[in-house]
Amino acid sequence: MNNVISLHIVRFIVLILVQAIVLNNINFLGYINPYLYILFILLYPAKNNRMLFIFISFLLGLGVDLFSDSGGVHAAACVTIAYMRPVVLKFAFGTSYDYQTIKFSLTEFGQRLTYFSILIIVHHIILFSLEIFNSTKILLILKKSLFSGVFTLLLCLLITVLFSRKNK
């Protein structure tokens, strides 16, 4: 049990630092940045204390906000996806979620893809609408969310494949 908690603490800190130091400076084609740090929320155990989970997600977003001088946009987006995660879990994984037995490394690729992409696109739309905060620039918001979302999704899938432990 302790092992699991320390794994999540390390993951929390490493993801914020990687986001602040490396990923915020990618600026592919001028504006496309992946937001890999939400992997923490995506991979958080399905069986959890929901209030604690939402609060930790808030802290995660606030940590990224601190580094990127963006007010509270990351925090808002993180809190939202943390709150709506159970619904998406049920939608993507169907019945197996009800028994609370999900191990993300053991799920089917297709299910994982739906689960990741729904949460990532919601996160990005909230993030960019709050960051740009201007309804006349809705096209820019959608463009940024779509391209950055694809980038984030690819990176998330790569990382989960790379770091998954094979349970044979």
């Binding site: 808030f58 977003g61 906000d65 963006s70 007010g71 509270g72 925090a75 808002a76």
Partner: peptide, 13 residues
């Protein structure tokens, strides 16, 4: 928590 972050966001604008 959402309103706290919204508050920070509006301040930053």
């Amino acid at each position: 928590l959402f309103s706290i972050s919204l508050f920070f966001t509006i301040q930053s604008h």
